[in-house]
Each structure stands twice: as C-alpha cells, then as structure tokens.
Amino acid sequence: MTLLLAIVTGILFTAGFYLVLRRSLVKVIFGLMFLGHAANLLIFNIGRLTKGAPAFILEGNQTAVEPYAEPIPQALILTAIVIGFGVQAFAIVLFKKAYQMIGSDDINSLKSTDRIA
C-alpha cells in the first residue's frame, strides 16, 4: 500500500507541475490543486500507514495501545486541506475575473505588467 501511495504521489506531483507550466489558466488551477493533493498524500504516507487502528486513545485506556495510527500527520493534513480549500476557492475566483477582463485563457496574453512603460 505504501508503494502504491508513493507512486500515486509521484504521479500527482508530475501532473501538477506539468499542468502549472501549461499556457491555459484553467490548467494552471488544476495543476495547483494536484500539487496540494500530492503534498497531502505525501504527508499521509510519510506518517507510516497503520491499517484498521484509530488515531486516538480508546475508552478506558490511559495511553494508546499498539498498533495505533499516528495522529499528527492526520492533523497536519486536515489543516492543510482546510487552508487549501480557502486558497483554491480564491484562486478560482481570481482566475475567472482575470479571464473575464482579458478575454483570453492564454497566459501569454498576460503581458501588460512586463512591458516597459
């Protein structure tokens, strides 16, 4: 399972970077999303997978009993997902606004900030 997830993470990173480098605004957004998922999956995988065991102390126990899933990566991912949700929502609105104003999906037409006045 770890190997499978590692491969998936790799694919997501590759696809993410490839899409971010494309010329279409929509593809860039998808690329950013893939990168976010890839990072989350990476953290999840790095926390070492534990099958069928919860990440909290069971009722009646004082400490966690082996085997238990590591809670920290899960907490990190949860936070990262929430942040990613907000940032991507903003990015979508921004890119949509930019698309409406420029009238083109092509990143090569975003040149007005590079011209020397």
Binding site: G16, V20, L25, V28, L32, L35, G36, A38, A39, L42, I43, I46, P73, L76, A80, V87, F90, A91, L94, F95, A98, I102, I107, L110, K111, S112, T113
Partner: peptide, 22 residues
C-alpha cells in the same frame, strides 16, 4: 495579471514547503 502570477508562484512555493515539512 500581477495577482495571477503572484498567486500561482506563491502557491507552488507553499506546496514545496509543505512537502518539505512532511
């Protein structure tokens, strides 16, 4: 236009940072 560039590059940077922390 400036914001699109700023947002994209900074988000990529955040993702690299997050992976490195992981």
């Amino acid at each position: 236009e400036g914001a699109v560039k700023y947002v994209t590059l900074n988000l990529v940077s955040s993702m690299i940072f997050l992976s490195a922390v992981g």
